[in-house]
Design a protein around this nucleic acid. Structure first.
Lengths: 195, 195, 195, 195
DNA sequence: TACTAACCGAGACGGTACGTCACGTCTTGAA
DNA sequence: TTCAAGACGTGACGTACCGTCTCGGTTAGTA
């Protein structure tokens, strides 16, 4: 509907530079020391250019998230066929990330960003896409584990697992092996093979 | 321990005023618009007095939390003898809080504060004291619900419930009735009385 | 010289406002109760704008001085042709200024400012420009007064007169008529007409 | 008169410590970075003790001056019998002081202190006591120098010499040899022995 | 081909809050 | 009653970012 303007279009280079600078700084200094001026300076872009295209700091961060520039690969669930083992090793991988100060920083940044911006919060689901595989596998496994029954609310279970991880990220408490086993036990029921 | 210094002692009135102002402002404007100058002004206290006794904004918030000036009563678990009902109505109460913009503000403030301050994070357990009753009742109920068995890691279950609530607070998604029932189902097993 | 930067230029309005506010406040409250915040507020300018262009309070004062916004007109030497009379009435005018609490304030402010800032001290000469007329007339009058001889160091004489006034400003002692006559006597020799 | 009080009398030790600390700090950091807290801390005295006995920073400085703890010895006029030589070498000594950054500091401090405190200004005369010898010698020399006549206002001449020095202290301009000779020439007339 | 509207970098501007320093007053406990 | 110690309310310091704005230069598309 808008009349076909004359003049130059939006500079994709500038957009990229801003998002890249944002994800770098997010990792380096964290969400709350992330400043618009810092982003502009790092990106070699004027403040005005940022304000022209984004409404706020959180909007920039949200877009950087969507762009997959922050985290994301680490969240893929392995698939060896053995659900209990896969779940356990996936959680073990996450436990390492939570333990690693360099990884937990961006995580906490994202949590903070999400907490004070519904915008980012809603983009968070984007980040969790890799975990839908988990939902499917749990659903498929119904009847094959003590706690997975036809009436088990699988989505809720996963949300709870995620929440438990969130708690650990926030409180900075490492997830030790026992904690992981316990989570798995709540999801699938106790490990009969071990007992 | 340390020799009792001569000279004026710390003013308890000032301390109280600061903590009270902090919890008020936390509720009114939220964690990230909470300023030291705002606290000082509201408390009728000089900035210097705050900086003399607290190292940072988050330290003040942490102490206000410990002092029980923020939230806390709402977290008590009802006890009618019927565990499933109590759990459900407790979650329903929390769901209302999460839905209420006025209540969710302080919650998010606490989450943000905890996220960027280990100090506050560790004080958070203080806030969760009311929920230990829940642990005890779940433990006592072992054997009386499908999912509560001798090998069920009760602490983990509660942590997961809490995490699920956290996710809802952060993402601003209301906990509808179905969500609550699902949570209860994961904890206690499906409701046989309903089915 | 330096390439004319792109981007907004320095705001002359802000500069003027700052200097005007400075000279006003200098007169109203004196140099040592002159604050950057006071200047900023009076000028309707942000502190940062002041700090962007001036390095210190004294730098602002120095520029206000150079701009001729402080004192200056009162220092003109009258010229009726009668050197002794002109000198006497010029000193009488200054004596009144020194006696007047409203005039002596800015004078003392300038002295204090000069005393702790070489910057301002060097600008002071700017202020004394009106007195060069005096040097010329004294030089022209060589031979026509007992103390004005070819070997009289006229500049030194004027510096001494100025110093004597300075002493009176600092010590707050009024220059009575006798004192003025004495100064004139040292410069031109005793008044033979009065004898 | 006053009833003989009970309780301890004023501590002379504290008074001395305060004045000593003041003159030290005056030399070290100058008048305008001289703080009450600095004095108290250096003197090992409580702030209250200073405020009990002195009304202000300038009052402390004034008393330190009177006590002769600041400058003073350097102002003595040598007496070899040759007035012109004595005057010249006295001025040469002062010129060195003015050139020496370590000496000019306290001088400027005193000027600043005097400028903003009539209290100190009036105490300044105390400091100039050593120069009364000069007045006497000039008076005694009347008739023996071209410019020293019965009708020469000797006090005014000395005040002017002093003022000229003051100007140099304030403007930080060194007094070179020519300047000194010129001053002497104005006081005593040109040096006939040199010419 | 020239015009011109929108883009871009740079950064000045009025603000708010930061964390620190010193002020002058007041309070405590010991001498 | 004085003293050392130092907490208190006050207010200014100089700095960091905020979000808006104004520059001069640089592209596109019409016209």
């Amino acid at each position: 509907m808008t009349a076909p303007r004359s003049g130059p279009m939006r500079s994709e280079a500038a957009r990229q530079a801003v998002l890249r600078a944002t994800s770098q700084l997010l990792a380096e200094v964290g969400y709350d020391r992330l400043t618009m001026e810092g982003i502009a300076s790092r990106a070699g872009v004027s403040k005005q250019t940022i304000y022209r295209w984004w409404t706020s700091r959180s909007a920039v961060v949200a877009e950087a998230l969507v762009e997959g520039l922050v985290l994301s690969e680490q969240l893929a669930v392995p698939d060896t066929g053995d659900l209990r083992n896969d779940l356990t090793s996936w959680l073990a991988g996450l436990a390492e990330l939570i333990d690693d100060p360099q990884s937990v920083g961006p995580m906490r940044s994202i949590i903070m960003a999400a907490t004070h911006s519904p915008e980012i919060a809603s983009q968070l689901e984007e980040l969790l896409v890799p975990t839908v595989a988990l939902t499917e596998r749990l659903t498929a496994a119904i009847g094959q584990a003590p706690h997975l029954r036809a009436d088990t609310p699988v989505d809720t279970v996963i949300e709870m697992v995620f929440g438990a991880l969130l708690v650990r990220v926030i409180t900075q408490s490492p997830l030790d092996e026992g904690a992981i086993d316990n989570l798995v036990a709540v999801v699938l029921g106790p490990d009969t093979a071990r007992g």
